[in-house]
């Protein structure tokens, strides 16, 4: 879109900004058909189809597809849920598994050619995911320990002089109820946003250099080269962010389940 706009003007370089993330609707004027929303639907379809195919003909000697599906599942089940939550982890595995695959696929859309937009770089998707985690871990904690004991344990830490509670209790409340879910969402959002912006800077910058005088044309391959290297770097960041998001969700659930933090 912006390439079309820019090549006509032939003016100075327009640095990419947050306006590049506000994409127009794909079909007509319906604002519910923007690219991120379509990508989220596509990711749901892809994940469902992949895991249905992978688990449909389950056999003792797994096929390649089944092996791929099972290794993702066992990674989430053993490395994330079992290690962190401990006993009684099995009922959180479906939630964590959904979270992990959903975030992973949506992040990786950022570097797949033609799609190339990480839908998690629109802040509302991470917010909704963080809200679900917020509901789950407080619900689990209240269910397990009873409302009064749960909140008392958050607010008043044992073994602290009484006067220090004035200083500390507001911080505990703010951390538990506002800062934790907010940072959880913003970390994912900011990583995807910054990564996409970084790629835009190098690719659009290289494109702009290519339209300049001969000296600038010679520099532009370096910009594209750095863009390609950063694409691989982005792949790493995207996998890591999906992992960290799921890990922290599991840790919050574990913290709510444990009697002592």
């Amino acid at each position: 879109m912006r390439e079309l706009l820019r090549s006509g003007t032939g003016g100075g370089f327009v640095p990419p900004s947050s306006a590049d993330f506000e994409l127009p609707p794909v079909f007509g004027h319906n604002i519910y058909t923007t690219k991120p929303i379509l990508l989220v639907f596509l990711s749901v379809i892809l994940i469902s189809v992949f895991f249905i195919l992978a688990s449909r003909k389950a056999a003792i000697v797994p096929s390649k597809l089944q092996f791929a599906g099972e290794s993702v599942y066992s990674f989430v089940r053993n490395d994330l849920a079992k290690d962190v939550i401990g006993h009684d982890f099995l009922r959180f595995v479906p939630y964590l598994f959904t979270l992990f695959t959903f975030i992973l696929v949506n992040n990786i859309f950022g570097i797949i050619p033609l799609l190339q937009f990480p839908s998690m770089s629109r802040v509302s998707f991470p917010y909704v995911l963080a809200i679900t985690i917020y509901l789950v871990f407080h619900y689990v904690g209240i269910r397990k320990q009873g409302a009064i004991k749960y909140f008392k344990e958050i607010m008043f830490m044992p073994g602290v002089p009484k006067a220090a509670y004035i200083l500390i209790t507001p911080l505990e409340i703010l951390t538990f109820f506002v800062v934790r879910p907010l940072t959880l969402a913003l970390r994912l959002f900011a990583n995807m946003f910054a990564g996409h912006l970084l790629l835009l800077v190098f690719i659009l910058g290289g494109d702009h250099l290519l339209q300049g005088v001969i000296g600038l044309k010679l520099i532009s391959p370096f910009a594209f080269g750095i863009g390609i290297v950063l694409t691989f770097f982005e792949f790493m960041v995207q996998c890591l962010q999906a992992y960290i998001f799921t890990l922290l969700a599991a840790l919050y659930i574990a913290g709510a389940l444990a009697d002592e933090h």
Partner: peptide
């Protein structure tokens, strides 16, 4: 969580 405490 240290980061969260400092921020809050």
């Amino acid at each position: 969580s240290i980061f969260g405490y400092l921020l809050s």
